[in-house]
Simulated scan of single mutants.
Amino acid sequence: MTTNKNVLILSAGRRVELVQDFQAEAAKFSDGIKVLATDLNPRMSPACHVADGAFSVPPISAENYIDSIFDLALEQNIGLIIPTIDTELQKLADARRRFEEAGIHIIVSDSELVTICRDKRFTASLFNHCDIDTPEIYERENLTFPCFAKPYDGSRSIGAKYIHTAEDLSYDMLKDPKIIFCQYIDITNEFTEFTVDLYYDRSGRLKCAVPRERLEVRTGEVSKGATRRNGLYTLLIDKMSHLEGARGCITAQFFCKGSTVYGIEINPRFGGGFPLTYAAGGNYPGWLMREYLYGEKIPFFDEWENNLIMLRYDAKVLVRDK
Score class of each variant (00 low, 15 high):
residue 175 K to A: 15
residue 177 P to A: 15
residue 181 F to C: 06
residue 181 F to N: 03
residue 182 C to Q: 15
residue 183 Q to H: 10
residue 183 Q to V: 04
residue 184 Y to K: 13
residue 184 Y to C: 12
residue 185 I to R: 08
residue 186 D to W: 11
residue 187 I to G: 03
residue 187 I to E: 14
residue 188 T to D: 15
residue 188 T to P: 01
residue 189 N to R: 14
residue 189 N to V: 07
residue 189 N to Q: 13
residue 190 E to G: 01
residue 191 F to I: 12
residue 191 F to S: 06
residue 191 F to Q: 10
residue 192 T to N: 12
residue 193 E to N: 05
residue 193 E to C: 13
residue 193 E to L: 11
residue 195 T to N: 08
residue 195 T to M: 01
residue 196 V to E: 09
residue 196 V to P: 10
residue 196 V to G: 04
residue 197 D to T: 02
residue 198 L to M: 07
residue 198 L to N: 08
residue 199 Y to M: 03
residue 201 D to Q: 00
residue 202 R to I: 07
residue 202 R to E: 05
residue 202 R to D: 04
residue 202 R to Q: 09
residue 204 G to F: 04
residue 204 G to M: 08
residue 205 R to I: 12
residue 206 L to P: 03
residue 206 L to A: 00
residue 210 V to M: 06
residue 212 R to D: 03
residue 212 R to Q: 14
residue 213 E to A: 12
residue 214 R to V: 01
residue 217 V to F: 02
residue 218 R to T: 03
residue 218 R to N: 08
residue 220 G to T: 10
residue 220 G to D: 12
residue 220 G to R: 06
residue 220 G to C: 09
residue 221 E to R: 01
residue 223 S to A: 01
residue 224 K to N: 02
residue 225 G to P: 00
residue 225 G to W: 10
residue 227 T to K: 00
residue 227 T to I: 01
residue 227 T to M: 04
residue 227 T to N: 00
residue 231 G to T: 03
residue 234 T to F: 00
residue 237 I to C: 06
residue 240 M to S: 05
residue 241 S to K: 00
residue 241 S to E: 11
residue 241 S to V: 07
residue 244 E to D: 15
residue 245 G to H: 10
residue 245 G to K: 02
residue 245 G to Q: 06
residue 247 R to W: 13
residue 247 R to Q: 08
residue 249 C to M: 13
residue 249 C to Y: 09
residue 250 I to G: 03
residue 253 Q to V: 08
residue 253 Q to F: 15
residue 254 F to H: 04
residue 254 F to D: 02
residue 254 F to Q: 09
residue 256 C to N: 10
residue 259 S to F: 07
residue 260 T to F: 11
residue 261 V to D: 05
residue 262 Y to Q: 05
residue 262 Y to M: 06
residue 263 G to Y: 07
residue 264 I to Q: 06
residue 265 E to A: 04
residue 267 N to L: 03
residue 268 P to Y: 05
residue 270 F to M: 06
residue 270 F to D: 06
residue 270 F to V: 06
residue 271 G to H: 03
residue 273 G to Q: 05
residue 274 F to I: 08
residue 275 P to Q: 05
residue 275 P to E: 11
residue 277 T to A: 15
residue 277 T to M: 09
residue 277 T to W: 12
residue 285 P to I: 15
residue 285 P to E: 11
residue 286 G to L: 12
residue 287 W to R: 01
residue 289 M to V: 13
residue 290 R to L: 14
residue 291 E to T: 11
residue 291 E to L: 02
residue 292 Y to N: 09
residue 292 Y to K: 10
residue 292 Y to W: 15
residue 293 L to G: 05
residue 293 L to A: 00
residue 293 L to R: 09
residue 293 L to K: 12
residue 294 Y to T: 05
residue 295 G to H: 04
residue 295 G to A: 05
residue 296 E to H: 08
residue 297 K to M: 11
residue 297 K to D: 15
residue 297 K to A: 14
residue 298 I to R: 03
residue 298 I to Q: 04
residue 299 P to R: 11
residue 300 F to Q: 00
residue 301 F to D: 02
residue 301 F to L: 05
